[in-house]
Nucleic acid binder design. Structure first.
Lengths: 229, 229
DNA sequence: TTGTGTACGATTGTATACAATGATGCAATC
DNA sequence: GATTGCATCATTGTATACAATCGTACACAA
């Protein structure tokens, strides 16, 4: 996570390096490349029809993102996320998400609040019907809106990084109707606290929300996902 | 600070890319390259006696670290740290440093505690005599020990990143005997809370410590440092 | 004078050639 | 049979050549 800016997000779409970067990242996060898999510059370059140069540059970025580890003169290896890492990230996120909610009280725009309300309303619909695919999507978007509303590029970028870093495991956290409904209700309370500009309450609710998400994840299924470690 | 790992720290010393990366980073943090300065691949390559390739790779990493911004087909520009960024970082650090101190209660080693005590003792000596150079050094080291004692590579790396990110402005924060002594006393209280495994107290003290550091910095001199913006 | 178009130069983007390094297998020696 | 040394090969590290792109300056016309 080095990295704490977001300027290259546009450029990445149009340069070869950016496309390679996104492709590999997706393949790692989706599970196509597994922990300790070796990524070879030539192989990936050929697969995507580009030379080694953009692949190398993408590798360097992926290393800073923490998705791969480069051993000099040897190769690039996919790094896994350990259970401890996941726990750490959730604890860190919990604190930062609270900060983010607090700041959002002051800086959120009307349209952002409206999108949140719409999001929550729609999520209720899907949660009741067990549409977990859509729930995951809506949940992601809710937090994204929150991040974009804190008026701090630093914090926004940091949280987005973490958010996508645990994407692999996060899918599981909303996989019951019960948790989906509870989570959505928590979203609503956070939104209302922000709307009321109740800083302390918003901070606390957001903090607890992430804690709950983590607890729920631990309760059902995180262990299996990592049982082969 | 994308990047949230620390694997390449060793490799960086021995590869050209790593050396270029460190050199440019230092030059930005030390102020040799100023905000909006344009960094040209060829010029820097020639200055360091390497070709464009390692320079380009270093640029990509620096971009993820947020120190430069790369505009496609145009150039790389030094990104400044605005007063708002500094404030954000301190607020974020405040939270995370609290978390770090809390975790350290459980995981700190005897030898780390001893080094802390020594650090505080020595710092008192230098603070009383106005040796600000040594104070800055000792202060940095104190926090580093703390970071290394939380038993989370994630959090450790994150805090180290932030710490060096504000290095430019941080020097000013210890530039009075008064603040030096107060800061050192805060270090001592944090250390004692950790030693006593008083989690809540350690967290609170560490959080407040960073807040104080920020307040002090704002009080004397941050504005001037950025008056040309 | 002002606006527009074009051509040129500077710089980055990509591909490829060559150098350096580390892994592997085999043979020679103890 | 085990171990060490060497040769070979695969892979990354670096340099450089060429392509694409952007900004600018200048000429020309309204």
């Amino acid at each position: 996570m080095g990295n704490y800016d977001l300027k290259q997000e546009v450029t990445d779409k149009y340069s070869l390096r950016g496309r390679v970067f996104n492709k590999i990242r997706e393949d790692i996060l989706s599970g196509k490349y597994k922990e300790n898999d070796e990524l070879k510059e030539i192989a990936i370059g050929e697969e995507l029809g580009v030379s080694r140069t953009p692949v190398r540059e993408a590798f360097r970025q992926l290393e800073l993102e923490g998705l791969i580890q480069i051993v000099p003169n040897k190769g690039a290896y996919v790094t896994g996320i350990s259970m401890n890492d996941v726990k750490d990230i959730y604890m860190i996120r919990s604190k930062l998400e609270g900060l983010c909610a607090a700041w959002a009280c002051e800086h959120i725009t009307e349209s952002a609040l409206e999108e949140m309300e719409e999001n929550i309303y729609l999520a209720k619909f899907h949660a009741e019907r067990g549409h977990f695919e859509q729930m995951a999507e809506l949940d992601s978007r809710f937090h994204e809106i929150l991040y974009e509303s804190c008026n701090s590029k630093m914090l926004e970028h940091l949280l987005k990084d973490f958010h996508q870093y645990v994407q692999r495991v996060r899918k599981k956290t909303l996989s019951t109707t019960e948790r989906s409904l509870a989570s959505n209700h928590e979203h609503q309370m956070i939104m209302e606290a922000i709307k009321a500009k109740n800083v302390k309450e918003a901070e606390k609710l957001a903090t607890v929300h992430i804690h709950n998400a983590y607890d729920n994840m631990v309760k059902n299924g995180l262990k299996e996902a990592y049982s082969n470690e």
